[in-house]
Nucleic acid binder design. Structure first.
Length: 426
RNA sequence: GGUGGGGUGGCUGAGCGGUUGAAAGCGGCAGUCUUGAAAACUGUUGUGGGGGUUUCCUCCACCGAGAGUUCGAAUCUCUCCCCCACCGCCA
């Protein structure tokens, strides 16, 4: 969330940011509630000071065995006035807290302003494969090779779930291991295997709640949520902690399954594997000093690109516009891999800098000495997919398909599939 | 699921109705001593918020969370959350 004082002192900048995100959020109500709160707070605190003083006097009167009944009587009245004002204060506080949670992060100045048509392709890597035959889609390939069984996944659970089978399952597992090895051994991340269920505080800490509750799978009896991304449990590792400057930066990577209801997206991308309720993802999460976060974002993006380059998948880097970046992000790049069968660019990664927006919500800070003084500051958090699996599997299947209907296995994955070169083996 | 014991500052841990923001110890920081270090000694050391004459002053809040009793609550009452130990069940 944003700092209330920042909003108070930079109301115009916040209004501009909301407009750039094309959001109608009433700032005036918030600002007047804030003004009223500070006024009431002043009154309450003056009365409390009076009360504290009187209590000291009562205390010493009683110690000297003198009569304090008059003083006690007059304090009853003040206590009642304090109660009334505190009641109002409490109302204002909860109103302000609720309002603050609905205000999104302010986009960085480098983010293109406007609707998604303003998204900017930063660079493109690789060449789309050429075929001397009509390339099949992943759905056709999966069925032909018997490596993914969507009808049975539907029978077991419902539509838009995946059941990998045989070498399909093996390919999925190979990708997970390949990515984790790459990030831990080459890019310096520490591997985490977090819980797949998180509590409400964690979901609020990273910004999924309260806004996106309807998109989440929730266990009602326990008020727990299935994670929509590893970002949630991994970022919340340091919730309410104060780190030491020397600990930063922290790089974590985690494989998890991700669960999304995708409410309201029916009819969009619903064929095959492009939009499913459960998918695998390897995520990267960083905790860094504020002054480093934009350099760290570029490095994070590079780490995700490395995955696609090693897999030999053509992709493009897209800088998202102000209306396309997520609620909590101040800047975001998407990586889109090209899938030759469906002939489309598929979003396989999203790399974002949240600056201190999540750190404020989750209360993640660090201590350092600045100008000879000890200070506690919020860290900056970042995360990026490195990368999302289902869509990457699509791209591999469609781009590496051969005329005979088999699929070549990218070189970097072969150590993870017993050296196998294709599915089925030739 | 059952029973018992707990949640106090960076940590350990005292306090169980009235100068207690909180003893003591450890740790951290600064100083004295020393060629240097250690030891010893001395001082200092929480967070958040409001206001101001804004390298400082002042006020308020905070002893798991919330509510209550009281002139006054870390301390008493209630509700909830969490942790630990043992037992049961279990991949």
């Amino acid at each position: 969330m944003l700092d209330l004082r920042f909003i108070r002192e930079n109301a115009q900048a916040v209004r501009q940011a909301l407009q750039n995100r094309n959001l109608q959020i009433d700032l005036d109500t918030l600002l007047s509630a804030d003004a009223r709160r500070r006024q009431v707070l002043g009154e309450v605190e003056a009365l409390r000071a009076e009360k504290n003083k009187a209590n000291d006097q009562i205390s010493s009167l009683l110690k000297e065995k003198k009569d304090a009944s008059q003083k006690i009587g007059s304090m009853k009245e003040i206590a009642a006035r304090i109660d009334a004002l505190e009641e109002e204060l409490k109302g204002l506080d909860s109103k302000l807290d609720a309002a603050l949670l609905t205000i999104p992060n302010i986009p960085h100045s480098s983010v293109p302003v406007g609707d998604p048509s303003h998204n900017a392709v930063v660079r493109t890597w690789g060449e789309a494969p050429r075929f001397d035959f009509k390339p099949a889609t992943h759905v056709e390939l999966a069925e032909r090779l018997d490596i993914i069984d969507l009808p049975r996944a539907t029978k077991i659970t419902g539509s838009n779930f995946i059941l990998f089978k045989g070498w399909g399952a093996r390919l999925e597992r190979a990708l997970i291991n390949f990515m984790l090895d790459l990030h831990t051994k080459k890019h310096g991340y520490t591997e985490i295997f977090p819980p797949f269920l998180v509590n409400r505080a964690s979901m609020t800490g990273t910004g999924q709640l309260p806004k996106l509750e309807e998109d989440m799978y929730r266990l009602k009896d326990d008020d727990l949520f299935l994670i929509p991304t590893a970002e949630v449990p991994v970022t919340n590792i340091f919730r309410d902690d104060v780190l030491d400057e020397a600990q930063l930066p922290v790089y974590y990577t985690a494989y998890t399954a991700c669960f999304r209801r995708e409410a309201g997206s029916y009819g969009k991308d619903t064929k095959g594997l492009t939009r499913v309720h459960q998918f695998d993802k390897v995520e990267m999460v960083k905790f860094v000093k504020p002054e480093d976060s934009y350099d760290e974002l570029e490095k994070l993006l590079g780490d995700a690109e490395d995955v696609l380059q090693l897999l030999g998948l053509p992709y493009r880097v897209v800088a998202l516009s102000t209306q396309d970046i997520s609620f909590a992000a101040s800047k975001c790049y998407d990586l889109e891999a090209y899938a030759a069968g469906v002939g489309r660019w598929l979003e396989v990664s999203s790399c974002s800098n949240f600056e201190n927006f999540q750190a404020r919500r989750a209360n993640i800070r660090f201590r350092r000495v600045k100008d000879g003084k000890k200070v506690t500051e919020y860290v900056h958090t970042l995360n990026g997919s490195g990368v999302a699996l289902a869509r990457t599997v699509i791209a591999i299947m469609e781009n590496y398909q051969q005329k005979d209907g088999s699929i070549m296995i990218p070189q970097c994955l072969r150590p993870y599939v017993d050296g196998r070169e294709s599915i089925p083996s030739s």
